[in-house]
Each structure stands twice: as C-alpha cells, then as structure tokens.
C-alpha cells in the first residue's frame, strides 16, 4: 500500500466522522427511543405470552402455551369474536357515513374546505372521557332522549340505553369518524377534476364514473381509513368502560383486567399478541395498495 493510499484512507475516515456527528445528533434520539420503548417492550410482551402464570399473579419463567389455549376457551373466544364483529360494524359505518362527508368537503373551495375540516376537529379537543360521559347523560334513564320519547307518548317506560352494545357502537363511530374522514378527504381532494370530466366526456354516467374512476383512485384513502378505524376500535377499552359500564366486555377490557384485579399477565400478553397479529395482517394487506408512509395519519 502506497503512502498516498494510506493518506486517502485517513481522509476518508475523517470525512465519515464529520458526517456522522450530525447524523447521530439528529437521527439518534428518535432511534434510541423507538428501540427502547417500542421494539423492546413488544418483543418482551411476545416473550411473556409464552410464559406461565404465577400462582399469585405475575409470571413464572417457564415456557407454556397455556395462554394461547385459554384464548380458545369459549368465554374468551366469544369475546374475541364479538370484538371483531363490533370493530367491523364500526368500520363499515364509518366508511359509509364518512365517504360522502369527505367527498362533500373535498368538493368545496379550498378555503371553505379547510374551515370545515377545522370545524370537524374542534369537538375532538374536548376531553374524550367527557364526550363519552355526555352521550351517557343524553341517553340516560332520565335523560333528554327518554324524556322526549315519554312526552311524545311513544314509550311508557324509559328505555335502558346505557351499558348496551348499540350505545358502545355509537360512541365508537362518533369517536372514530374523523380518522375515517381525514384520509379519505385527502385522497378525494387529490383526485383531478379533469379525470372525472374525461370519464363523463367518454360517455360514462356519474355512477359508472364513480365506480370506475373515483372509487379506485381514492382506494388508498379508504384503506387508510379502514386501518385507522378498525384497529383502534378492536383495542379500545375506554369507550366500552364508559358506555358499557364494565358490563360489556371487549378484548381491550380483558387485557386491562389481566393487569388489574385478575393479574394473569401471560394471558394479557397473549391477547395483546393477538391484536398485534391482526394489525400486522391488515398492514400487510394495506401494503398491497400503497406504501405505509402514505398512510394519512395526521
């Protein structure tokens, strides 16, 4: 190796160091945080899900598939199926209600559209627990809905809305709708008007244009909406806790309970792993439509 070569190598090293310092300073903190508080906890919970439940709660570090077997127990299995069903209904409702809503806003002049979006966000700055509580007040036994129905003579006895699945669904749908509207809005907004005009010009009536042009081109927004509604709905426990009053159990409540009074950590971990697996599956399906970083999350 010639002297020149060695010098070149030294220079190269110095250069690399020079560009590495700003890189470490900028990308370092976020990388460390994500690894410490996302990657490691998730790996750890997968590990715990294969351990044994301790006699007085906690974990005995011995491999076992008991937690996963427990998931197949009818008591839990029906809850899982019910959670999936409710999350699915919520998602479908959010799409059906949200798409026309997003479409309407997207067709407004830009200034007005951004004002309408703002108007949509404001209610969500109120405390979410209080919003759920408001639904309870609205539908409670002596609340405005029952009072009105009684006064109109439509019912003789107040209806028990509280702690029922339909009220939980109402809470979920009204809480999740913005997360369906926003991604669909931004993909409808990107849709070029001349494409629709071209379609009309070529003889397609509005419904054909919608099916053949609008719907396929806004698919990424729709799939984003599905993910951003279905997954949180499946994992919720606050909505069910408030509006279900602890009587209506979903996956989220069961997970939470394993870390409270019941203390079966491996079971809680296994349920969490189940949610992770469902999430991963949906993301895999999503990547067939678009890239993950195109997911319109904010």
């Amino acid at each position: 190796m010639t002297e020149g070569h060695i010098q070149e190598q030294k220079k190269e090293k110095a250069r690399r160091k020079k560009s590495r310092l700003p890189m470490l300073a900028q990308a370092g903190p976020v990388s460390i945080w994500m690894i410490l508080f996302v990657t490691i906890p998730l790996l750890f919970i997968i590990y715990i899900s294969f351990m044994t439940r301790g006699p007085f709660g906690g974990v005995v570090y011995k491999f076992s598939l008991d937690s996963y077997k427990t998931l197949l127990d009818p008591i839990y299995f029906t809850v899982i199926l019910k959670s999936l069903r409710v999350a699915l209904f919520t998602t479908v409702l959010c799409l059906l209600l949200g798409y026309p809503f997003a479409y309407y806003i997207a067709k407004q002049p830009p200034e007005r559209a951004s004002r309408l979006i703002m108007l949509l966000m404001i209610p969500f700055w109120t405390n979410s627990m209080i919003r759920l509580n408001s639904w309870m007040l609205f539908f409670q036994t002596a609340g405005p809905v029952n009072n009105l129905l009684l006064k109109l003579g439509l019912i003789q006895k107040p209806i028990m809305f509280l702690y029922t699945d339909p009220l939980v669904m109402l809470g979920l749908v009204t809480g999740m709708l913005p997360f369906a509207v926003l991604p669909m809005y931004s993909s409808i907004e990107k849709l070029q008007k001349n494409l629709l005009e071209a379609s009309a010009d070529l003889g397609a009536n509005p419904s054909v244009t919608f099916r053949k042009v609008t719907l396929p081109l806004t698919m990424p927004g729709i799939v984003s909406a599905i993910i951003l509604v279905f997954i949180p709905s499946l994992g919720t426990y606050t909505v069910t806790d408030m509006l279900g009053g602890g009587k209506v159990l979903y996956i989220g409540n069961i997970i939470k309970n394993q870390f409270g009074s019941i203390r079966n950590w491996p079971l809680g971990a296994a349920l969490s792993v189940l949610l992770l697996a469902i999430t991963a599956l949906l993301i895999f399906l999503y990547t067939r439509f678009a890239r993950v970083d195109e997911l319109e999350v904010v």
Binding site: M34, T39, K256, V292
Partner: peptide, 28 residues
C-alpha cells in the same frame, strides 16, 4: 442501515392499539 427499521417502528405506536403498547411497557 437501521433507517428502514426505525421508520417502521415509528408507525407502530400510531397504528397498534394503545393498550398493547401500554401493557407491554408496563410489563417491562
């Protein structure tokens, strides 16, 4: 090297139900 991985990890807290991450952090 790890950039792709970190980018993926960033989307995890946004997408995965919060209860899962909360419970995982709690156990840890």
């Amino acid at each position: 090297k790890a950039k792709k991985f970190i980018n993926m990890m960033i989307y995890v807290p946004i997408i995965v139900p919060e209860i899962v991450l909360a419970v995982a952090t709690l156990i840890l």
